[in-house]
Design a protein around this nucleic acid. Sequence first.
DNA 1: TCACCTATATGAAACGTTTCACTAGTGGCA
DNA 2: TGCCACTAGTGAAACGTTTCATATAGGTGA
Lengths: 339, 339
Amino acid sequence: MAAANIKQVAKHAGVSLGTVSNVLNRPDLVAPATRQKVLDAITELGYVRNDSARQLRAGRSRTVAILVLDVSNPFFTDVVRGAEAVVEEAGGMLIVCNSGEDPRREQRHLDMLEEQRVQGLLVTPVSDGRHSRLDAFVKRGIPVVLVDRGSGHSSRCSVAVDDLNGGRWAAEHLAERGHERIGFVGGPITIRQVADRHHGAATALADRDTPLDLQLFTTPSLSVDAGRQAADKVATLAAGERPTAVFCANDLLALGVLQGLTAHGLRVPEDVAIVGYDDIEFAGAATVPLSSVRQPRAQLGRTAAELLLEESMNDGSHQHRHVVFQPELVIRASSDHYR
Amino acid sequence: MAAANIKQVAKHAGVSLGTVSNVLNRPDLVAPATRQKVLDAITELGYVRNDSARQLRAGRSRTVAILVLDVSNPFFTDVVRGAEAVVEEAGGMLIVCNSGEDPRREQRHLDMLEEQRVQGLLVTPVSDGRHSRLDAFVKRGIPVVLVDRGSGHSSRCSVAVDDLNGGRWAAEHLAERGHERIGFVGGPITIRQVADRHHGAATALADRDTPLDLQLFTTPSLSVDAGRQAADKVATLAAGERPTAVFCANDLLALGVLQGLTAHGLRVPEDVAIVGYDDIEFAGAATVPLSSVRQPRAQLGRTAAELLLEESMNDGSHQHRHVVFQPELVIRASSDHYR
DNA sequence: TCACCTATATGAAACGTTTCACTAGTGGCA
DNA sequence: TGCCACTAGTGAAACGTTTCATATAGGTGA
């Protein structure tokens, strides 16, 4: 409770207040004997530096914040772990905040983070769009890096994954395996990621020597349940109409489709091949291991943090960059079958 | 960058510095006209309160920290969301820190959180044991609530789930369904949760009118893969030796067992019934929906945060409490079958 | 011996708030 | 009129650091 402060430590050690501060911040300026006296006093009194005061006077913070859409989404947890590694390596601390896709909670968090004068901010904003709220951070000298959202902005860095290519490669893979009726399961199509994946796949198929259509099965959400319902629609089509392969906008849908089709007596991949997206932990562990488009999630977090720290250090000379990662198709049993 | 401060706001609005502070903290003390002038100045200058200075002077923080073992574990993400709701309701901010089960990272986080003088700490320590490090927080007046770890300590509150009962109910359910050869899949048995679940189940079976044994299949970890390997062991036993039901220490194992048994041509639940633990999102969505023991995860987080805030407010009169929640058995197809 | 270094240590100022004792004005009441 | 109570606003002190200009003491070379 006594919450010893630096002054008491100084008195206890029989030195001046400034010397204690030097022991803490530039130990090489202090003679070894004195340093030891001070360190002893610190342990004896259980002194712990008051970060508020330090930050107030020094004008800089050592905590970096990451504000994500959903703490329980494996995508973000992996991004967080990547960012964490970099920030801690640099001697800082990463704090995680959760907007839960709610603009008001996002707002609240941004307000408090700005009050705290964090060293920097990694953020996936709830809505694509202008993000003028974030400009306040930049104006205050707090660097902001956008994660997996609208890049191309000139006043901040961004990292993202190329969803167009992700869709493209999934579709090309299926076409190469000889499939001619291919479906896309996903929605709502207003989500940028879903739209991009769909568009990439559709473009890839249209660009082939013998162009193919991409049959769209929209879903109300990206859940296992929605996948099962989509499977019902697919399964009830006549055999000559039914797609022989489907590409799903994420793995939850794909798992649902897999279960639904199996329940209808259709075999995967013999009757219908499946490719998912995200390569979540369960994709490889499904009854039929699932092909999926893997995103370099941890890498995304690492790079975002690196860009942030770089901007935070190189005061002035920093050039904003927009890094786009390429996803990778992981082929497993659910689509590894020639027709 | 100018980072306007309260003094500049005061000058801009033509009032004293103290009045601005009053507008911010006790608006009712200020005449409406003055208040408006100040608010206008604030927006005009883009003033944002400096939380370090506020905290330094006021001596209290409004951020609560939760330090978890693994941000990507669904158990903890749900706990976080529960705690978040309560803290934000109270006008505070919850920051999430991740120890990744690494004692050194835990230590680093605790050091920084102590320097920050957070309002309170929710924590699942890496090791059961003495946690003397946490006493420093308590001594400094920072309340600590233990989450899902060693309760019974007199200087802090704790919340936990009764794993003994969880194991007991799973086993009783299987016995009531007529199973006489029951297996337990799980490990390492040194993990307190695993040991409790096993012990609860074993005790329940031993206490029956016609006592039953619990056959132990230890696994090196709690993963899907480990479950599949356990399934190999189970499946290769002679039909008269093989358990007709298995209780798994968590759902990942259970999913692995399900897949493994299916691969061996055994039917679930007809040949072998399965009960898992945790009731993760995928449990109900598996090929055969999985019975599982559900923990009130969000409730755990909510209660932990409530205890913390209560202690934080009621200075002095607070009585430490140890809340133990009861888990709940969710019966689905994987075990809903009479022999 | 003196002037000049270097290595150490000092203490006051400043960071941006909150709080509190205080002043000034206003109106009610005897 | 004189007194009191009340409301609105003021400004200085304090919170615990970091930083910087300065002081002190040996030591070195001329």
